[in-house]
Design a protein around this nucleic acid. Structure first.
Lengths: 133, 133
DNA sequence: CACAATCCCGATCGATTCAGTCATATATGA
DNA sequence: TCATATATGACTGAATCGATCGGGATTGTG
C-alpha cells in the first residue's frame, strides 16, 4: 500500500473533525487553515468523503462539514481504500481490488505478499478515527 | 509499499536465475521467454540488477546473466527497494527514503504507520531468494 | 429581496511515473 | 568477419497525482 497526499489529507481532516465534533459544522476553509491543506484540494476530498457517507455537509452561511458517524465506527482501512485503493502490496494479492500481475504464478511469493496484506489490512481495520484523535 | 511491474519482473528473473544457477549464463531472451517478460524491458531490469551487483553478465556469443551471489544472501527487501524505493506506506516513516509528508505532525498516525513499516521491512529482509525459489 | 458565505462539480493543467520500445554501440566466440 | 550478446541512452504514450479554475446551487442574514 502506498499513501497519497489525498488520503493523508483525508485522515488529517477527519481527525480534525473528530476533535471539533461539538462545534457543529466546520467550513472547508477553516479545516484547510488549521491543517495546512490547500483549500480547493480539500474541497474535493471532503466531497468524496461525503459521497461515501463518512461526513455530512450543510450549504450556505454557517455551513460546512461534520462527521456523519461516530469516530470509533470509521476505520483507517476504509478511508485509505477509498482514496488509494488496495492495501495490498500488489493487486494480485488484494481482496477488494484483485487484478492479475506477473508474480502470480510464483506460489512462495504470493504467500509472502498475502501474509503482508493480511497484517496491514488487519492493523488498519482495527484502528479507528477514535484511536488516532 | 507498492510493487511495480519492474520489481515483480526482477523477482521473477532472479528466481529463474536461482533455479538455473548451474547452467552458467542465461540470455535475456531465454529468461524473457521462460517467464513471459518483454525482452527489452527485462534487459533494462537486468542491467539495473547488474549495476547493483546482484547479477553478473557476459557479452557475446553464449553470453548472458547469472547470479553474482548466493541466493540466500539476497533479500527481497533489497531488490524491491532498488526498483520501487521505500517499503514504508508513506515516506515520512521511511528509514532509507525519508521525506516530509502531511501526516507527520500526527503522532498516533505516525506510530501506526511505523509499526506497519517495521513489519513489512522485517518480513522482506528475512526472506531471501533461496526461500522463494 | 439581495447578498455573502458556503458547498457542489466538472474541466483543466503541469509534472511525474510507468511500462515499454528503438536505435545504436560495444564486446565476444566461432 | 560475422552472428550473438550485452550496454546505454533517448524516446513515447498512457496514466496518475496534486493541485487550480470557474461557475452553479443553496441558504442564512440584514
Amino acid at each position: 500500500m502506498r499513501l497519497t497526499a489525498r488520503s493523508e489529507y483525508a485522515l488529517l481532516a477527519l481527525v480534525h473533525l473528530v476533535r471539533h465534533a461539538d462545534e457543529a459544522y466546520l467550513s472547508v476553509q477553516s479545516i484547510a487553515d488549521a491543517q495546512g491543506i490547500p483549500a480547493k484540494f480539500l474541497e474535493q476530498i471532503l466531497l468524496t468523503l461525503k459521497r461515501a457517507r463518512y461526513v455530512r455537509s450543510l450549504k450556505g452561511q454557517h455551513g460546512g462539514y461534520r462527521l456523519a458517524r461516530p469516530a470509533k465506527e470509521i476505520s483507517l482501512a476504509e478511508v485509505i481504500r477509498l482514496f488509494d485503493g488496495a492495501l495490498a502490496p500488489t493487486e494480485s494479492v488484494s481482496k477488494y481490488f484483485y487484478e492479475s500481475t506477473p508474480i502470480e504464478k510464483e506460489r512462495a511469493l504470493l504467500k509472502l505478499f498475502k501474509g503482508i496484506r493480511d497484517y496491514v489490512s488487519d492493523r488498519l481495520e482495527k484502528t479507528t478515527l477514535a484511536d488516532v484523535s
